[in-house]
Amino acid sequence: MKVANEVLAFYTKKVLIFAISMFFAAGLIFFVISLTPGNIADIHGLSPTTAASLHLDKNIFSRFLLWTYNAFTLNFGPSLANGTQVTELIFDYAPTTIQLAIGSLVFSLLLSVPLAIVFALYPHNKWARLSSTLVYALSSLPVFVVAFIILALIFNLLHIYPLDPPTENAPFWHILFYQFLPMIVLGVGNGTLGEFVRLLQLEIENTNQALYIKSARARGAFLFPHFFRPVLLSFITILVSRFAILLGGVIVVERIFNRRGLGWLTWESTLNRDFFVLMGVAFLTVLVIRIFILAQEIIIYQLDPRRR
């Protein structure tokens, strides 16, 4: 019973923190938007009836409560630029971004695990050192510089122009590049790949120094099962912690490659000062990230016996 109580306490605490921090996040978003000088209705030239229907005439606290209440039911109001509901807009544009984000994460993780293993196993090898410098250097660049490097290489070496959508008879490479180039660029740039490789490598090296690995070696045991669990745990931690930064790079990637996704929507609505869309996208993004963080904490709690 005691163990069950502890588990219950843990989960309750986590869910409570989740709810309260979402409330604070909504508060931050709303507070920043409310710093707009002037009246939202006046900026967009809305008629008084429209403004009243959007509750723009009420005072700030009731507006905040109304917005937060609606936000938790995923109703963010209409887009001030073209009138469609923000939720509809987001669901229209989300698939591209989800595909991009997941694809880039998968690519980055698939590439980083072998790289981390090689860099950890062969620290003195000349080629390993050279490629690790290259990986860290390339990865710490902003996304658009990485995009330009890769595009320049493809352009100069292969004479291919992969930025257009492929037509009916497009060759195989065109389709391939068109689909995967944004994911590759997003997975490499802004420090994503470099952080993954560095943290995984650090985890492998730290585990290697531990006494239980030494004693496993002395027993003649296979080392891979011993490394699996700690590396997996740090894997999950890094994944979740880089996800927020990944979503920041999505905006630039969608602009470079001319995709219409949530990043493009965010940029457009910032230009048009479309507040509701921006608030909706921000709230949803924070919600998704906090869900991921919650999932990570639960998984680590279940998988790591030391926490219990």
Binding site: A25, L28, A282
Partner: peptide, 21 residues
């Protein structure tokens, strides 16, 4: 608590909200 709340915002989104406002 406040640090983790702030960390769950993507940097770009927060900056864009400020720019919009």
């Amino acid at each position: 608590f406040f640090a983790s709340t702030l960390l769950s915002f993507p940097q770009m989104i927060l900056i864009l909200i400020f720019i919009c406002a």
